[in-house]
Design a protein around this nucleic acid. Sequence first.
DNA 1: CATTATAATGAAAATGATTTTCATTTTCAT
DNA 2: ATGAAAATGAAAATCATTTTCATTATAATG
Lengths: 149, 149
Amino acid sequence: MERSLLKHFIKSRGLRQSSQRDRVVETFLSQKGHTSAEELLIQVRKKDKRVGLTTVYRTLKLLTESGLAVERKFNRQVSTFEPARIGQHHDHLICLGCGKIMEFENKNIETLQEEVARKHTFFITHHVLELYGTCLDCSKKGAKKPKKK
Amino acid sequence: MERSLLKHFIKSRGLRQSSQRDRVVETFLSQKGHTSAEELLIQVRKKDKRVGLTTVYRTLKLLTESGLAVERKFNRQVSTFEPARIGQHHDHLICLGCGKIMEFENKNIETLQEEVARKHTFFITHHVLELYGTCLDCSKKGAKKPKKK
DNA sequence: CATTATAATGAAAATGATTTTCATTTTCAT
DNA sequence: ATGAAAATGAAAATCATTTTCATTATAATG
């Protein structure tokens, strides 16, 4: 469990522990898929009513900085966060019809990206690759109302 | 000149012409690189003081919908827009040190993207590929203050 | 265990980019 | 020339996120 990673991060920064933050972290790590601050707050409040949105934002920032969460924007205004699996990285297919998000990983693409960078004498720290379009279901049903989430 | 494309778009939508919009379009199309609404307003106002920010936003939306502009978010809050060169598409290397943006085009990556989509029975309409990192200059100088723009 | 410096909290206010509203002006088909 | 509807811009609204600030909680130390 990479929980100790956060503990270490907290310590090394001279931060203190708190029950609210623990609850947010615990809830976040149990989450599947991509979660916004607002959505996470709803989940957290099922366990503890006294947690505020500000703390959720602050904790998500902490998780992101410590490498336990990855922030993603996709095509909307809100940031969503996803528990990071160490050493792993994936990109996304995003259906504009229903909002469905699928993951993929492609080493060949990454190799080509490195090649591009090398040509420009550029050093990649991270990348964003998002493929937008229509999933199978939506292409069958025809374009329907996009799902809000 | 693809100006006629917009004229056609305006007409087909039952819109009317206006000097403000013409000025915004003209200024935008003469722009190199990526321009935000705010930046574009400054340029436009050099020619015509009476243009408002709202009109710039509205015109940029129109340009984007008609395919004459491409909107990009990169890693910041503000949207920037870039004149679209028809039939062409490119992706970007973004230096986190100085903010420099370089373009690249790589057909092999696009082919692999299509392959990924096929495997998921997904139909790509567009994609976002951004490589973040450090450019040559910045890697020599060491990490300096990031350029705001 | 008591003290105390300071981190954490959450409500409310601030922010910043963008959009909406609305009263007024302009355009253009007739 | 006329009138219906589009365009405008200032101001207000929106919306996600951040900051402020008074209060509370934590933990290192005496």
